[in-house]
Design a protein around this nucleic acid. Sequence first.
DNA 1: CTGAAAGCGCTTACAG
DNA 2: CTGAAAGCGCTTACAG
Lengths: 343, 343
Amino acid sequence: MATIGDVARIAGVSRSTASYALSGKRAISADVRRRVEDAVSSLGYTPNAGARALATTRTMVIGLLAQFLPDEFAPAMLQYMLGVSDTAREHGYDILLATDADGTRALRRMTDSRMVDGVVLLNVAEHDERLPILRSASQPGALVGLPADCTGVDVFDLDFEEAGRLMVDHLHRLGHREVLLVSQPEHVVERGGAYVWRLQNAALEAARARGMRLYATYGSSSQPDVGRDLRGLLDAHPDATGLLVNNEAAAAALPTVLHERGLSAPQDLSVVGRYSDEFARTFSLPFTSVESAPDRLGRMAVRQLVRRIEGEVGPDEPHVVRFVSPELVDRGSTGAPPRRGDA
Amino acid sequence: MATIGDVARIAGVSRSTASYALSGKRAISADVRRRVEDAVSSLGYTPNAGARALATTRTMVIGLLAQFLPDEFAPAMLQYMLGVSDTAREHGYDILLATDADGTRALRRMTDSRMVDGVVLLNVAEHDERLPILRSASQPGALVGLPADCTGVDVFDLDFEEAGRLMVDHLHRLGHREVLLVSQPEHVVERGGAYVWRLQNAALEAARARGMRLYATYGSSSQPDVGRDLRGLLDAHPDATGLLVNNEAAAAALPTVLHERGLSAPQDLSVVGRYSDEFARTFSLPFTSVESAPDRLGRMAVRQLVRRIEGEVGPDEPHVVRFVSPELVDRGSTGAPPRRGDA
DNA sequence: CTGAAAGCGCTTACAG
DNA sequence: CTGAAAGCGCTTACAG
């Protein structure tokens, strides 16, 4: 493989001149530049990334820590990953992906061995074990997901409280007074998935303020359990006219469950989910939903991370905590509640 | 950040001795080993990956080229990715992930700059533009997906021909004589997604051999188009009693479409898909399917790649092309065809 | 505008 | 069993 030394020799210049001709970091005569460029293309020269990283202390790589936890819905993670990956590339960075069950080890490995210039953590828990490690690392980090303590990191998340209110308000405005909410599995909450109760608490609060009944429950993360959960919920609350679904697996299972019972949305039941438009189209989910904007969150996290890496924002400059406002995407699965006695 | 020089100084030995004590590549006195280990832990020393790569010409990183093409179903890719990532980690490798639309650029970047020791290509097309680049790279490569020309690479894929036969045979054995097949979008085939017609041709052949009618068609990769495709197909063939689905998006949309028409599987229609068990559970797909084994394929590709990287198999040793045999997972969506006139 | 030299942090023959 | 030195392939002050 050709090195910068080969390029220099062919071009008849010193290695430093060859290097500068390529980086453009100092003035170079047109003649020399031409000769260096010719040498580069005739040799098919590409700089050795490891050597460059060693010399510059910059790897041009961003670590991406995606956790696929047992009780969570894996495909939802993909959209965050793609948002991060695509944005990183636009900024000239590659992605080192860690899917280790043990995110702390992966994070430590990446940062301690200086494989990355910075790190994006996905699916951050309220008391995320990765955070102390990230704070003691010398690279900056950006999170998607809101932890209890945000010091030293930039944080991006959907405004789940607003999402909860939005879902409740929407059904309230249509006349619903008795509504169900299916959240992610309780395990997720126990493990620190704060977004679950952030949405749930805000929804309960909004329902209370509006004089609505809201039954909040948890659903499993895969079949057949989540189908059973949905059936049990509908059985237990025959008078409910609305269903809020903050659980991707439940949203995916719902069409089948409704079918079994001969129910249709919105005629028999109004349904509002919380997932991305991409997700809805991919999985043929016909429900009105609150957009969770995973690509946008991934994109925001990378942008801020790159700003930190490249020193556009000083190391002591305050870290940000930014929430994306949820938006309701109407897919026609909500309407006025059915009149009593119609069934 | 501590360097090996710091470790050596604290331990009172030379840098080479410190290095050997850590690598174990030559005999070290117990005393020295202890002192080096103490120094390492007191300093929290971790080798700089870039420096090590430069010295050893080994990065301990595998490039993963995942293409998310417009007309393909993104979430199916995730399972391959996880199979690759998890297996790489078990072998001590990290993953450099490229999701660039232009896979050739990403591949060239990774290999030319020596960021990776080897490469896994996902979703390989029949005449994949990445292959010439891979062949001229100095790193080995493993593919998931069968190209027309397999020289110089190790290849792993599902036996799609066998899968097509299996699906047809299964319905034939149950008594079906008129059957539909929905494949991936025609765009995918045109772009070189050979697996589509490998399955389709084998299915057509098997149907012919058994005297069955098989109508083969293509479906879109997302909603609402794929729903429309399915409806059109069912409208056009009211006498068909079986439906084969080699299209994840169609499989995901099917429950809703069946619901709309008041159809149930297997009472009204026998359905066989082609997707992984993981996929079925995640998306609540209730259909009997041919297991596509993405995790297993990712795992096989990495294992062979690591063997090549680590020289366990000589560079001239013949490359392998290995097919995974499909297995039918019965989820109860197939049965005898409904008797004529029952509707 | 250009070159010679030092240095990034490792590993590994070479020598003892 | 251990050390001094060279080298991996870059970049970047320093000097002219």
